[in-house]
Design a protein around this nucleic acid. Structure first.
Length: 475
RNA sequence: GGCGGGGUAGCCAAGUGGUAAGGCACGGCUCUGCAAAAGCUGCAUUCGUCGGUUCGAUUCCGACCCUCGCCUCCA
């Protein structure tokens, strides 16, 4: 089999065939840096990372691009309120975002273009659209995209969202500043400068102003990946209007070769719910990544949970689920530790394992991670059985370990964190307990064990003597 | 109102026209002075409801119920 993905354009699972053999251009709509990103945002970015890693696993040379939106209404509002400069304000949240991104083991995209650094390309693209008669400057000095004119060129608006515009509800949701537009559905390419914008503006052929939201992605993606590229990802909410408008702008500029689309495969990730409800600050279920880290969970555990569910399925993110993820991951870590110990540093000469075949089959099927994890845990079970029976050779262990490492290049969980060293005081208590046990004073030994537990350290008596383990703090 | 997802054990979840993967939780066992940890093992006659097609449906068709999302800034 080969990789198959669900294309929003056709609403069906299609075989993935890149425009240029073995090379993949992939663009994912990134964050607007005006706040700390929440767990829902990261579901999409972790999904993009998973796909990027799987494409690499499948032998594709991937060029992964993710934009940073650093100029936008909410940003401008905050900048105005705080009195900080645009770069100072967005810089802070971008750094925070990337720190969180790293904590989730997401590989940095090959390029991270900023909207503010692409104003020249954005203006050029709008110019093309104006020259083609598809965009117009309105009385409010802003430049809008004309959907009627676009359709007049034989283009189809609404192909991605599959919307029937005649039957769409309109009404009070249309804001009052839309008077200037020729048609209600037209959207801004260039927003004319208003006093509230403060210092945030750029010169353009249409006067001072700033880019509209959708145009930055068209300009940046086509500038970096070319007018036609393979994959465009994002959250499901971006299907309309953001991605629909991106198609309109990009194909309206007609930069593509004849018969080529702007994007071949549109892939969207579903949103997540938190504790059964839509995330909302008022419900107290609004989690940023740092909130979860503060609760004692690791980025690794959160990543595991996020990649344990299919990207197109709605997913209920719960603290209970996170606890379950911790246990499941611990089992996996335990096996890897045992295998590593058995190999004694020997690396596998061959890592042909059924595991890899099953993993590839499942992932080829539109990234069926649930199926993948099913076979992985069956494999864990079998390895454990062999280990328990003492029938596993050093070579077998090395081969198994090698196979897992290949799988983990995609899942990106990495090695289990090293155990924390106990402080001297704790170690002294442990020695007292050992002494008590030696003299069969189990009452005293148990008292010390309780004392250690109260201090946050759990004892595990193994064949090689007692081990101390720090209790992870959980909510 | 339009469009699109879902409803499978306590929770998460895969899946197939031929009789239900996997994970968490839970029970039993091994180990242990007792625990813990780990391992082994058990755990849905049943897949939202009602009809239909079929030798046979959770899987196909129809109706209905429930639920989520998008149509507005939004991952």
């Amino acid at each position: 089999m080969s990789l198959h993905l669900f294309n929003t354009l056709s609403r069906s699972v299609e075989e993935f065939v890149p425009l240029v053999p073995n090379r993949v251009g992939m663009y994912c709509c990134g964050p607007t840096v005006h706040n700390f990103a929440h767990i829902g945002n990261f579901r999409t970015f972790v999904f993009a990372d998973l796909l990027r890693r799987y494409l690499a696993f499948r032998g594709f040379d991937v060029q992964h691009v993710m934009n940073i939106t650093d100029v936008e209404d909410k940003i401008i509002k905050s900048v105005g309120q705080t009195g900080r400069s645009l770069a100072d304000f967005t810089g802070e949240y971008e750094r925070a975002f990337l720190a969180d991104f790293d904590a989730l083991h997401c590989l940095r995209p090959h390029q991270l273009p900023h909207a503010t650094e692409f104003v020249v390309q954005i203006v050029a693209l709008i110019r093309t659209l104006v020259a083609r008669g598809i965009a117009y400057q309105a009385a409010d000095q802003s430049v809008y995209f004309s959907i009627d004119k676009y359709r007049g060129c034989g283009c189809h608006y609404g192909q991605l969202a599959h919307l029937n515009f005649e039957e769409m509800r309109s009404g009070e949701r249309v804001s009052s500043d839309d008077y200037a537009k020729e048609s209600i559905a037209d959207f801004a390419l260039w927003k004319a400068r208003v006093p509230e914008d403060g210092d945030v503006f750029w010169p353009s052929p249409w006067g001072e102003g700033r880019p509209g939201w959708h145009i930055e992605c068209s300009a940046m993606s086509m500038d970096i990946l070319g007018p036609s590229f393979d994959l465009h990802l994002g959250g499901e909410d971006l299907v309309f209007p953001h991605h629909e408008d991106e198609i309109a702008q990009s194909e309206g500029a007609a930069l593509q070769a004849t018969g080529q689309r702007f994007v071949k495969y549109w892939v969207h990730g579903a949103h997540l719910l938190v504790e059964g409800q839509k995330m909302a600050k008022s419900l107290g279920n609004y989690f940023t990544l740092r909130d979860l880290l503060a609760k004692g969970f690791s980025g690794r555990e959160i990543r595991y949970l996020l990649i344990s569910v299919h990207y197109r399925a709605s997913f209920n993110f719960t603290l209970e689920g996170l606890l379950g993820a911790r246990t499941a991951l611990g089992r996996l870590d335990e096996l890897i530790a045992k295998l590593t110990e058995l190999t004694g540093g020997v690396t596998a000469t061959s890592s042909h394992e059924v595991l890899l075949d099953q993993f590839t089959d499942a992932m080829d099927d539109d990234l069926n991670v649930s199926k993948s994890w099913g076979s992985i845990f069956n494999w864990v079970h079998e390895q454990n059985k062999k280990l328990a029976q003492g029938t596993m050779s050093r070579e077998e262990a090395a081969s198994a370990l090698g196979a897992w490492q290949r799988v983990d290049q995609v899942f990106g969980l990495g090695a289990a964190p090293a155990a924390e060293e106990a402080p001297a005081l704790i170690k002294a208590l442990l020695q007292d307990r050992q002494a008590a046990r030696q003299s069969k004073d189990f009452a005293r030994s148990d008292v010390i064990r309780d004392e250690l537990k109260a201090q946050g350290w759990v004892i595990e008596d193994t064949a090689k003597g007692p081990k101390l383990k720090k209790v992870s703090s959980t909510p």
